Amino acid sequence: KEQQNAFYEILHLPNLTEEQRNGFIQSLKDDPSVSKEILAEAKKLNDAQA
């Protein structure tokens, strides 16, 4: 469930490039146990690119 939530949120971050988004999603698939950390990174990058 946590992985699904992170997946959904990353898909809807407006400021990520397609490449960045795909990278985060691939990381989620590779290691779902760190989905919280991956989501935090994605949000940080999204904010930095706002």
Rank of each mutant, 00 (worst) to 15 (best):
residue 31 D to K: 14
residue 32 P to I: 11
residue 5 N to M: 14
residue 44 K to I: 11
residue 34 V to P: 04
residue 49 Q to H: 07
residue 31 D to L: 04
residue 9 E to P: 02
residue 35 S to T: 13
residue 48 A to T: 07
residue 42 A to F: 01
residue 40 A to N: 10
residue 3 Q to A: 04
residue 26 Q to L: 15
residue 16 L to N: 00
residue 5 N to K: 09
residue 4 Q to F: 09
residue 47 D to V: 13
residue 40 A to C: 04
residue 26 Q to I: 12
residue 16 L to R: 00
residue 14 P to W: 14
residue 40 A to V: 09
residue 13 L to G: 00
residue 3 Q to K: 05
residue 14 P to V: 09
residue 19 E to C: 06
residue 27 S to R: 14
residue 10 I to C: 01
residue 45 L to E: 03
residue 39 L to E: 04
residue 18 E to A: 08
residue 45 L to N: 03
residue 20 Q to E: 04
residue 41 E to F: 15
residue 29 K to G: 03
residue 11 L to A: 10
residue 49 Q to S: 07
residue 40 A to L: 07
residue 39 L to Q: 04
residue 1 K to P: 13
residue 37 E to V: 10
residue 27 S to F: 12
residue 31 D to Y: 13
residue 39 L to F: 03
residue 27 S to N: 11
residue 17 T to C: 02
residue 25 I to T: 07
residue 31 D to F: 13
residue 1 K to N: 14
residue 49 Q to T: 03
residue 32 P to Y: 08
residue 11 L to R: 11
residue 43 K to F: 15
residue 32 P to N: 03
residue 17 T to H: 03
residue 34 V to R: 12
residue 8 Y to N: 06
residue 37 E to P: 05
residue 4 Q to W: 11
residue 7 F to N: 04
residue 18 E to F: 14
residue 14 P to S: 09
residue 27 S to L: 12
residue 42 A to E: 00
residue 38 I to H: 02
residue 1 K to H: 15
residue 2 E to S: 04
residue 24 F to K: 00
residue 15 N to G: 06
residue 5 N to F: 09
residue 30 D to R: 15
residue 39 L to M: 11
residue 17 T to G: 03
residue 25 I to F: 12
residue 21 R to C: 03
residue 18 E to R: 11
residue 34 V to M: 10
residue 15 N to A: 07
residue 27 S to A: 08
residue 27 S to M: 09
residue 11 L to Q: 08
residue 3 Q to I: 04
residue 12 H to Q: 12
residue 22 N to T: 14
residue 41 E to R: 14
residue 9 E to V: 15
residue 17 T to R: 05
residue 4 Q to M: 08
residue 36 K to H: 08
residue 44 K to H: 09
residue 20 Q to H: 02
residue 10 I to Y: 01
residue 46 N to I: 01
residue 38 I to K: 05
residue 32 P to D: 06
residue 2 E to A: 05
residue 25 I to S: 04
residue 6 A to C: 05
residue 12 H to R: 15
residue 7 F to L: 13
residue 34 V to Q: 10
residue 9 E to L: 14
residue 43 K to Q: 03
residue 1 K to S: 15
residue 12 H to S: 10
residue 37 E to H: 09
residue 44 K to Q: 09
residue 36 K to T: 06
residue 47 D to E: 10
residue 4 Q to P: 05
residue 43 K to C: 03
residue 13 L to V: 01
residue 32 P to R: 06
residue 10 I to N: 01
residue 15 N to Q: 03
residue 40 A to H: 10
residue 41 E to P: 00
residue 38 I to C: 03
residue 14 P to E: 04
residue 9 E to N: 09
residue 27 S to Y: 09
residue 26 Q to D: 05
residue 34 V to H: 08
residue 18 E to C: 07
residue 31 D to C: 03
residue 6 A to I: 04
residue 9 E to Q: 15
residue 39 L to S: 04
residue 46 N to R: 02
residue 3 Q to R: 03
residue 19 E to G: 04
residue 26 Q to T: 08
residue 1 K to C: 04
residue 20 Q to N: 02
residue 22 N to K: 14
residue 28 L to N: 01
residue 42 A to I: 01
residue 13 L to Q: 02
residue 16 L to F: 01
residue 17 T to F: 05
residue 19 E to T: 11
residue 41 E to Y: 15
residue 10 I to T: 02
residue 45 L to M: 07
residue 5 N to G: 11
residue 28 L to I: 06
residue 11 L to T: 05
residue 16 L to G: 00
residue 29 K to P: 02
residue 38 I to A: 04
residue 28 L to G: 01
residue 38 I to Y: 03
residue 33 S to R: 09
residue 4 Q to R: 06
residue 21 R to A: 05
residue 1 K to M: 15
residue 2 E to C: 06
residue 33 S to P: 05
residue 10 I to S: 01
residue 24 F to L: 06
residue 32 P to W: 13
residue 9 E to W: 15
residue 25 I to Q: 03
residue 10 I to V: 10
residue 2 E to M: 03
residue 3 Q to C: 03
residue 25 I to N: 03
residue 17 T to D: 05
residue 20 Q to W: 02
residue 20 Q to S: 02
residue 36 K to E: 09
residue 30 D to M: 14
residue 16 L to T: 00
residue 33 S to I: 09
residue 16 L to S: 00
residue 25 I to W: 05
residue 5 N to L: 10
residue 7 F to S: 06
residue 3 Q to Y: 13
residue 30 D to P: 03
residue 23 G to P: 02
residue 22 N to E: 06
residue 43 K to R: 03
residue 36 K to G: 10
residue 24 F to H: 01
residue 5 N to T: 12
residue 18 E to G: 07
residue 14 P to K: 12
